[in-house]
Nucleic acid binder design. Structure first.
Lengths: 144, 144
DNA sequence: TATATTAGTATCCTAAAGGAAAGTGGTTTC
DNA sequence: GAAACCACTTTCCTTTAGGATACTAATATA
């Protein structure tokens, strides 16, 4: 009845593959965790996508309207990436027209605190930028 | 809105639930914070850099050795970016040869929780990946 | 027959990120 | 006079991210 796309499991992590890279060096071990996290989460869309899909499972065109500015090509690619890293699951229901539901896995729940802190920080950051603009300081920002 | 399409009751339910409990306006405003945060923090180096500079003020060549893989050109650019966003301060001491110290501002301290959660998540993520490799779940990838 | 809907692809393109390798200028030490 | 140190800069190059626009197949509705 429903079909799920076959995915080739995880992407190797650069830091694991390149053992000579991080390895036993004490100095880099402190930033290694953050670099590893960024390696799978980096980019403009992945975290916002996980955030909205964690709120609720959604369909392709629904996400397109929800995530402001994303194009179908980019969305399809990001969803494939997230699926291959087991953050989301794609399920096809054979309705007419077809229905495809994307929903987060339990693994996405481990990002809960990361998302919460980024959400919180982003909000106060925008407030700071607004304040800077009022004080005639010029700082680049995305939303006004 | 209720769809006239013939869908399984499962999907039909979800669509209604989505519309009633997760309005579109609300959702986009929530991902906006995260997008705003990513706008200034995105990239391979910024968060690892803030992390190490929050540990201790450091000199240019010191950072170069500490952050594995970064080149002087990229480091100089990233430091300029972080400075312009008021995450760090650059101070020149007229020694011979010249000494340049980079240190974080109080504003970088607002990223404390974000960094802590990313650090924590990255560590457990790497453990998960290692486990997957031991279980032979991983298929070859371009980074090999 | 014409149109709409679904979940995407296909093509083409630009800008930005990132990287390798060498060089710079001022000063001090050997 | 040569070499080394520091904090970068310069040049050239490749890769990746992201975006605009158009298009597809299958079905259903008007």
């Amino acid at each position: 009845m429903v079909s799920k796309r076959k995915v080739s499991s995880f992407v190797y992590m650069k830091t694991i593959v390149n053992e000579e890279f991080h390895g036993k060096q004490e100095c880099t071990s402190k930033t290694r965790n953050i670099s590893d996290a960024l390696y799978v989460l980096n980019g403009k869309w992945k975290l916002p996508l996980i955030y909205t899909l964690r709120e609720s499972p959604r369909r392709f065109n629904e996400i397109l309207k929800l995530i402001e500015g994303i194009t179908p090509k980019v969305l399809a690619k990001e969803l494939r990436d997230l699926e291959s890293n087991e953050f989301i699951v794609r399920t096809v229901y054979p309705t007419t027209p077809v229905t495809v539901i994307y929903e987060t896995t339990a693994y996405s729940d481990t990002l809960r605190n990361v998302l919460y802190e980024l959400d919180h920080w982003g909000e106060q950051h925008r407030e700071k930028i607004k304040q800077s603009i009022r004080n005639n300081k010029v700082v680049a920002d995305k939303h006004l």
